[in-house]
Amino acid sequence: MSDEKQSDEQMRQEAKVVTMTPEPAQEGGLPSEAHGLIGHQLREEYRRVLAEPLPDKFTKLLEELARSEGQSTSKPESKE
């Protein structure tokens, strides 16, 4: 049971962005229909934001960070 759950977990981890399978409704105090509807809308809303085009500023920022890494030879701090 727990093994099965764990491998399911791993599969979901890997396929998370592509397919988000509904959670089995076993943990909550609400009947499964509520989990179904609420869970569905939650994932829909989340997916909608996930699918938004990525503004350039993020890739630019990461490029900049990577570039500054290449230039400075200082060791990364272990604690920020």
């Binding site: 993020f58 920022l61 990461l62 960070l65 890494e69 060791k75 990364p76 701090e77 272990s78 604690k79 920020e80």
Partner: peptide, 11 residues
């Protein structure tokens, strides 16, 4: 978050 993550990537 990205800046912080980058700075503390060693951890």
């Amino acid at each position: 978050t990205l800046v912080k993550a980058w700075k503390s990537r060693a951890s």
